[in-house]
């Protein structure tokens, strides 16, 4: 957690291999990802990271099923195996009955659940979530947080989440605070008041 502009998203992008540091190194599971080439990094992301974005980032012209299938195209799975994985992921988020719907036909909460299914379908090591409830109403936000908590507990997924939402933070196993690019175990006074 941290105030706007503190560098939360930048840190998340670095951990997820979307961005490269100007100096220093980023070691995830023993691999220094700052040294990887562009294509290697893309492959590394596909293998290790599941993304959950604030605005869901679903592809509007693809159905829920196809959106979830998208990351599996980069794997060596057969069409049938891909289908199985997609159906499992969609039933995990409770949307197997909406798989033929396009994102525009789904509510915000449902879209975020599709996005979560897309994030977990490849069974990544880490799920990174950038403000996953930022665009949702209270009820949908609660559902999405519960779902993420379940995923973390039931299938043991590590979730790194950036959030402003104290309810989201409450679900976390540990909370780190970031202010002006500095990481701390306890929040700065001004931010604590805000929380």
């Amino acid at each position: 957690m941290g105030p706007s502009g503190s560098g939360k998203s930048t840190l998340l992008n670095l951990i997820a291999g979307l961005d490269k540091p100007d100096s220093g190194s980023i070691i995830v599971q023993g691999i220094d990802i700052s040294l990887l080439l562009e294509t290697e990094l893309a492959k590394w992301r596909a293998d290790n990271i599941g993304f959950i974005f604030q605005f869901y980032n679903l592809i509007p012209v693809l159905t829920a099923f196809e959106n979830v299938e998208l990351p599996l195209i980069l794997t060596r799975l057969s069409k049938n195996e891909r289908k199985k994985h997609v159906l499992t992921a969609l039933s995990l988020v409770g949307l197997d009955d909406r798989m033929d719907h396009y994102p525009g036909q789904l509510s915000g909460g449902q879209q975020q659940r599709v996005a979560i299914a897309r994030a977990v379908v490849t069974d990544p090591v880490i799920l990174v979530a950038d403000e996953p409830t930022g665009d949702l109403d209270r009820l949908s936000a609660r559902d999405v947080l519960n779902l993420m908590e379940n995923l973390s507990k039931s299938i043991g997924k590590t979730i790194v989440m950036v959030t402003h939402d104290p309810r989201a933070a409450k679900k976390a196993g540990s909370i780190m605070y970031l202010d002006k690019g500095v990481l701390a175990d306890v929040p700065q006074t001004s931010f604590q008041e805000c929380v």
Binding site: A42, R45, A46, F55, N57, I59, P60
Partner: peptide
Amino acid sequence: TGEIGTLRALGFNR
């Protein structure tokens, strides 16, 4: 542009 970013984040290469 956003879609391109998403696809790249998911691991699709250039």
